[in-house]
Design a binder for these strands. Sequence first.
RNA 1: GGCGCGGUACCCAAGUGGUAAGGGAGAGGUCUGCAAAACCUUUAUGCGUCGGUUCGAUUCCGACCCGCGCCUCCA
Length: 494
Amino acid sequence: MPLRLYNTMSSQVEDFHPLHANEVRMYACGPTVYDYGHIGNFRTFVAVDLLQRFLRQSGYKVRYVMNITDVDDKIIRNAAQAGVSVQQYTAKYVQAFLEDSALISIEPPHFVRATEHIPQMADFVARLVEKKIAYRADDGSYYFRISEFPGYGKLSKKDFSGILDGARVDVDEYDKDSARDFALWKAPKPGEASWQTPIGSGRPGWHLECSVMSMEELGESFDLHAGGEDLIFPHHENEIAQSESLTGKTFARFWFHARFLLVEGEKMSKSLGNYYTLRDLVLKGYKPSSIRYLLTSVPYRKQLNFTFDGLKQAAVSVERLRNFRQRLRSGGFPGGSNPELQALAAETLSRMQAALDDDLNTAQAQAAIFDMVRKVNSALDAHAVNTGDTAPLLAALDRFDEVFAVINDDDSAKMKTISQWALSDGREKEISAELRDQIQADQISNAAIESKIAEMEAARKARNFAVSDALRAELVGAGVIIENTKDGVRWRRK
RNA sequence: GGCGCGGUACCCAAGUGGUAAGGGAGAGGUCUGCAAAACCUUUAUGCGUCGGUUCGAUUCCGACCCGCGCCUCCA
């Protein structure tokens, strides 16, 4: 079964085959760097990351490009207000975006920046003008004449035929031939940042950036273009119009859009007070792995209701997977192998693959791994697991984590980084007790833990439970979780 | 108004024309000195409402109710 993906262009789930045999070329619209990214932004970026990981797991080489929009109206305005250059203003947020992406285990795509492709953008406009598809307005701005692109509206399923015929409202105000024509290039207003180019001075329009950079990196036709659902119109519609009217070729073959999330049942907005950045959540003490798990647990085309309760549930689910892996790794199993478990591992792999092949049904992939976890835990309790079984079972777990990326525990190190950032950024008041508690587990060394446990075990052997309980309480207080099993003590950091 | 998505147990959520995955939470139990972890049992005669098609619908069709998204700020 090949991968099947929903394509916004056809409004259908289609078989996905890349243009080039084993290579997928994909592009995602990245952040506009004027602020810290919020969890809604990251739902989209995590969804695309998951797609990219699954494509690679399926054997494709992936060329994944993401733009960083480091010039736009808001950036220019904010930079001017702050009295710094556009570059100075955006540097902080570019860095924050890279850190946040790493925080939530997004594998870095190849990043391209708008401000590093200005000459190519000007050239793109010049070629559109040559073809009479774009025109220069009196103020030096350039617009795209949508009446020149018959397919306009094909992605967003909008019909512009009525509007194109003589609807000239607002034309004077915008200096455009038609109200629907969109800006390719904006002439500078006094005091605004601008670039000198052969088509005049000014700055690129947002839509232009993505067309130019994606085609430069991936070719005139490439496999997949991704973004949040809000970008369907006008952003992606305009990209298609510009690109296809210039090249005469299909721009992107698949259009992948992630649905918006809700926060506590409502649209996230600053005015509702339910607007959260990744850093806000970590400061409250939530683990990055919990956030990633929650974001991936609902398939990308469904509305996801992001709640604190859900975040807590996600943390428990991740913990269960981590405990399971530790249990399998702890060894001490009898030789040989159990055919049922061998079959279970194989079945789990194929169930996960089938689920993700089906338009990235992450919920079903998770169900498959949890079925395996429960059955194997049962077998472990019954001493029915043999040495030869652990490798295939652990391989299935690894396969899951190649895509979901939540089992490997680097939470406390990441949380420590956020806590240090808060200190250096004057936000130490926002560091919650929960966060302090979480990062405390990193304070004590492995050797110290092992020695305490040895003491504890000696006391337990002597049936001196008062002493052993006190030692355990001490370790728990230091953020170390202790489990006494028949086969000895297992421990891990909180 | 135009276009589109969704309403499944206490919470999150998958799914199918033939009788409801998975996770969390709750209850009971097993194991254990205790705790933790793990396992077992249990929690929707019912999948927004009302009709229709069908031997049979949560799944198809229609109407209605509710929630949400886009319609040039927005992931």
